[in-house]
Computed example of a mutant assay.
Amino acid sequence: MRQYSFFDQLCMVADSALKTTQGIYDSAPRKSPSDGIAEQELTDDEQKHAANLMRINHTGEVCAQALYQGQALTAKLPDIRKEMEQAAQEEVDHLAWCSERLIELNSHESYLNPIWYAGSFAIGATAGLVGDKWSLGFVAETENQVCKHLESHLEKLPEQDYRSKAILSQMHTEELKHATTAIDNGAAELPAPIKLGMKAMSKVMTTSVYYI
């Protein structure tokens, strides 16, 4: 099996960053959970609100990609690195589903995605350097917070927006699986101040991306 140098890995990271922020995928994403669900009529305000929520979820997946890529770059144990890479690949489907839904809602992805990608990548790489159990701890906490956001958005979406809800429901199932996998692989419980910091950063992201 080929061993990649650190420079090779940096090139792959740069490639992944460009693809993630530009909506380019190495392989065809899975069929969207919304396929086969009829589009319901939404008012202009409902459509705009749904699009803004889906934009937040798309950016959340961009951040997840960056976090996993950063951790995969610096993770010390090969099996942990493999877990990070596999999780990142699964998140690609979520990115595609949210992007497709934004187009259907006549909206756009966040213009701030490159900034959030860079910040999340730095956090992931730092966590990987500190140690694999802490790296997995960040995964578990991130996914737990993502699940809470998804649950909140499922309640906030217009009642008749069944297509968006189908996407978020499937994402919730898979994000929960990622958190469970991280815990099963020895994730450390993050200190309360770090959890609060992550929640504060998440709040800034969701507030800004809702509009931009």
Rank of each mutant, 00 (worst) to 15 (best):
T20Y: 01
K199E: 10
S120F: 00
Q3V: 15
P114V: 13
Q65R: 07
T180G: 07
H178A: 02
L136Y: 06
M12T: 14
A188E: 10
Q9H: 08
A72G: 08
W134D: 10
L95P: 06
L190T: 04
G70T: 07
P29T: 07
Y68L: 12
H178E: 05
V139I: 15
M198Q: 12
S99K: 14
A127F: 05
K177M: 08
E151W: 00
Q47I: 09
Q65I: 00
C147H: 05
G186C: 07
S202I: 07
A125T: 11
V146H: 02
Y25G: 04
L150N: 02
L157Q: 06
S27K: 15
A96N: 04
L136C: 04
L53P: 05
E83S: 15
A72Y: 00
M84G: 04
A87K: 04
K31S: 14
I37W: 08
N113K: 10
Q22L: 13
H153F: 12
D132M: 08
C147Q: 12
N144D: 13
T126V: 15
L53T: 03
P191S: 03
Y162Q: 12
Q40E: 11
T173S: 10
S110F: 03
L10K: 04
I183W: 05
F7R: 12
G36T: 08
M1T: 14
E85M: 15
K203I: 04
N57A: 06
T173E: 11
L196M: 14
S32C: 09
N113E: 11
I103Q: 13
R101K: 09
W134C: 08
A179Q: 12
N57W: 03
L168R: 06
Q71M: 14
G60F: 07
R81W: 10
A96M: 06
